[in-house]
Amino acid sequence: MELRQLRCLIAVTDTLHFGRAAQNLDMLPASLGRHIKLLEDSLGTRLLIRTTRNVSLTEAGRTFVEAARDIVEQADRLEASFRENRQDQASILRIGAIDSAAAGLMPQLLPHFRELHSDIDVELLEQKTIRLVPRLLSGRLDIAIVRPPEVRDARLVYHHLFYETAVVAVPEDHPLATRKTVTVEDMADAPLIVPERNSRPHSHDLTMKLFLEAGLTARVAQIAEEKQTIVSLVSTGIGLAIVPRWASRLAVGGVSFVSLELPESARNRLALSAVWVRDARHPARDAFLNVLKNRLSALAQTA
């Protein structure tokens, strides 16, 4: 019996869905399934009942998972306590950020942070939310700027910051490039480039839902994973893309970014949150949060 197996069981219990549990743990569903099977084999009993429609716990599973939570929580507390006692804890701050925040928020924020806390070295990692959350839980990051997931791990604290503004990336020679604003209806017949949903559910759903709510069908011409790739594909004329306004800070030529007119109900869909491990003391992280909160209003105006 391993901690990894216990974490897999707890994740499935919390979501009752192998796909979402695997995504939260940054692993493949098949790998998660193997961990559960190994755990059941070592215990000699079945913990989960899995059908094509749902997942549920057996009676033995309900009893076991409560004890498993206690074991995992004790292990997490021990790890957190050890990290807090490291002598270099206060001098290094490891920050994760999704691509738009890395391009738009961090360049505005870090100079102020370094001016106030020149004794703290900052390490910055740009990644997707599904990659950053596991790194927080494992102690490889101290804080991250992410899109808050639908299912949130109780071991983490999520602090809402603001909503990013959506714009349309269009090739410079496209007829819409000269417009000050565009609507979803203006893009009705345009081919679109959208992110892959498993890795970027918020950005993917933003495009698909906007077209659906307008009574239109999104013409997806290309799926791409990284914002840099998406904007680069726009420059080649493959299609248009709805992206966060901070994506305009990416160094890609041949692309114009046009404001997108949205109904009030659709404006708050690109949420940005700061997230960190609950009950983990970290002076450098707290210093960063203070600077972030003090500059939040100014940052929100540029997002």
Rank of each mutant, 00 (worst) to 15 (best):
M1D: 07
E2T: 02
L6A: 09
R7E: 15
C8W: 00
I10T: 01
T13L: 05
L16I: 02
L16E: 09
R20L: 07
D26I: 04
R34Q: 13
L38V: 07
E40N: 01
E40Y: 01
D41Y: 05
G44T: 05
R46E: 02
L48K: 05
R50E: 15
R50A: 15
T51Q: 07
V55I: 11
S56G: 11
L57N: 06
L57C: 11
A60C: 08
G61F: 07
G61L: 07
R62N: 14
R62I: 09
F64T: 01
V65Q: 11
A67W: 08
D70L: 13
D70H: 13
I71C: 07
V72C: 05
E73T: 12
Q74N: 13
Q74R: 15
L78S: 11
E79N: 11
S81A: 15
S81F: 11
R83C: 08
D88G: 02
Q89H: 11
A90I: 02
I92W: 03
D99P: 03
A101C: 03
P107M: 10
L109G: 00
F113K: 01
R114S: 14
K128W: 08
T129A: 08
R131K: 15
L132I: 13
L132A: 14
V133A: 13
V133H: 12
V133D: 09
R135A: 03
R135K: 14
G139D: 10
L141S: 03
A144C: 12
I145S: 02
E150K: 15
V151L: 14
R155V: 02
V157Q: 00
H159W: 07
H160F: 11
H160E: 11
F162L: 07
A166V: 03
D173R: 14
L176S: 09
K180H: 09
T181H: 00
T183Y: 05
D186G: 02
M187N: 07
M187W: 03
A188K: 14
A188N: 04
D189F: 12
A190L: 08
P191K: 10
L192A: 15
V194Y: 04
P195Q: 09
R200L: 12
R200S: 14
S203T: 04
H204M: 02
L206C: 00
T207E: 03
M208A: 09
L210K: 00
L212S: 12
A218K: 08
I223S: 13
A224F: 05
E225V: 15
Q228R: 12
T229G: 10
S232H: 09
V234I: 11
T236R: 13
G237K: 15
I238P: 04
G239Y: 12
P244A: 06
W246K: 02
W246D: 02
G253A: 14
F257C: 01
L260E: 10
E261P: 08
L272M: 03
A280I: 04
R281V: 14
R281F: 13
H282A: 00
A287V: 00
F288D: 01
L289T: 01
N290W: 04
S297Q: 10
T302W: 00
